[in-house]
Design a protein around this nucleic acid. Sequence first.
DNA 1: ATGGCTATATGTTATAGA
Length: 259
Amino acid sequence: MRIATFNINGIKARAQALSEWLDEAAPDVALLQELKSVDEGVPREIFEDRGYNVETHGQKGFNGVAIASKLPLEDVTRGLPGDDADEQARWIEATVVGDTAVRIAALYLPNGNPAPGPKYDYKLSWMERLEARAKALLAEEIPVVLGGDYNVIPQDEDAARPEAWRKDALALPASRAAFRRVLHLGYTDAFRAKVHGPGHYSFWDYQAGAWDRNDGIRIDHLLLSPQAADLLRAVGIDAAVRGKEKPSDHVPVWMEIAA
DNA sequence: ATGGCTATATGTTATAGA
């Protein structure tokens, strides 16, 4: 089962680029972030014409996540537990049954800038809820995949210019520590289980020629429960997508598991 | 770099992103 995560930065603006990527990469499961659309505004035919089932959790203007799957999606839930007052659409979960059942979440973790401030407080509290949900899923002792835009640069090697991010919400020590707390529970960063060293990015800013200068950061991640990590076969980043016509500022990150 | 670009809705300007 090949699972990819892709922050598309607006599903209406990305209809062409998203369609081309689905045709070329043809993942079994696609986890999407930043739909920037309500559910009724999502052009579902992009998925349905290619044989995907799709479940969305949309919101007007920003945020919005989705899971598209060639296999049936079961037990779909929307919203990250832990705060009934939180109305931001940043989390959707479903079970995909291939050779094995896999519980899969698509997540869009808050950016958190400027830090310090209320947006950063929201990021850290959201990450506490993420840790709690990740822990609850571990107790099920099944393959779990938590994929999405984490808005966290885990280590300096995950940025072309780490010094430029030193005071940014994506790289502050508290952000990195909260990300590591999920790893310490027993989750594996799928990409880092297979690829080591610097120079691997999933986001390049639209500004200042960041793509042309390869001034990127790695912030889109696939986290695996032990039962999923056991099945991991391959990983990759479709960086070339960033160089195509009217691209998102993120690119797809994918993995193959024997499930 | 305190915002150079992009997308969306609040829409000929503001908000958000990272």
